[in-house]
Design a protein around this nucleic acid. Structure first.
Lengths: 183, 183
DNA sequence: TCGAACATGTAAAAGGTTACATGATTAC
DNA sequence: GTAATCATGTAACCTTTTACATGTTCGA
């Protein structure tokens, strides 16, 4: 799965600008995919060159012309074909868990700060997903991803809240200097 | 967080070869980070050049010499410093949820196959994490990441098992051809 | 008046994967 | 005899991020 396919997928939902698609990545897609302008705009350009999307220009008022992209029949076919063969692979890299793995190397304050930050972030993501769930106009698959996100964030938050106090209580600050102990 | 920092972290646990570190990524780290040989070996080389790790060569029996890397005091300092400043960012891209979002574009058989595949994979990951939990020699942080993984996989599996039948029951195969409906 | 939202785009760099090259040993 | 495990490494490629460039409108 890549940005190009997801842009095509976004356009299968209706006509959108690159800016709109960025907002989609930041909202509905945010718990399972991210993309920056630097990958979205070139993706749209490639898709247009390949004839999978077409573009209609709307004069801009005080900002660049809006380029409204829509999917073509060929694009729809290509999307269906890709979804049929794309393996459900996951590339999850959690800086949070990587940091936690080495908790014994962190100062206590820093450990607390990391836990606070992640708890707050997951809380926000969860609140957002809860605010958009049970939406009748969503296709069934979209609701599945929302429920999945809610289930996962709830479990993650519960685990963090459950373990944080014990973790902090047993935590010892590392000594300031190590000298040549490990030489 | 990147492969270089995690290699340094791996070596903070003891002397290891690049091959060992790869196995660590595939086991203990697998639910929050992945890395291939193509990134591990160059990372180790860079770390050695920077004086953060050193290398001891053990003659190989029927295979290339084993290069045993260990962290230097300077490397330990650099690791602690990086962990202190690295933000707990996450880059999770789930091909599974991306596919599910567009479930209405998938043939029913394919949808079932995706669900089966992911359920099996999560089940294996969960079983693995459950097999290594409560290990006394693990640092507290490592156990935190294991418990976190267990909580998240359990929730994910429960959600999939809870929704899959309803999802499949209401699913309609897409028509074979679209023609010019969207033109 | 200051920042956020709207809107597009490029170029360089970072980071990593995939595929390749090599080859012995061990377990089934 | 065939596949997996052990063991290292490179090079080309791919994808994506980051930083930059530009400029208006609207709300606090």
């Amino acid at each position: 799965m890549n940005v190009k396919t997801l842009c095509l997928g976004a356009l299968s939902l209706g006509e959108h600008t690159g800016y709109d698609i960025k907002k989609l990545f930041e909202s509905t897609f945010s718990h399972f995919y991210n993309a920056s302008f630097g990958s979205i705009y070139p993706a749209l350009k490639d898709l247009e060159k390949a004839g999978l999307v077409r573009c209609r220009v709307e004069p801009g008022q005080g900002h660049p012309d809006r380029k409204l992209f829509s999917i073509t029949p060929k694009g729809h076919e290509a999307l269906v074909e890709e979804l049929r063969h794309e393996p459900p692979a996951e590339h999850c890299r959690s800086g949070f868990l990587a940091l936690m793995f080495f908790a014994h190397l962190l100062p206590t304050d820093r450990l607390r700060q990391v836990l606070d930050e992640v708890e707050a972030r997951y809380g926000e993501e969860l609140a957002y997903l809860e605010s958009i769930r049970h939406c009748p106009e969503n296709p069934a698959g979209a609701n599945f991803t929302i429920e999945h996100g809610i289930a996962v964030y709830r479990a993650a938050l519960a685990q963090i809240r459950d373990q944080r106090d014990a973790l902090l209580a047993h935590h010892r600050d590392i000594p300031e200097a190590f000298g040549e102990v490990l030489t």
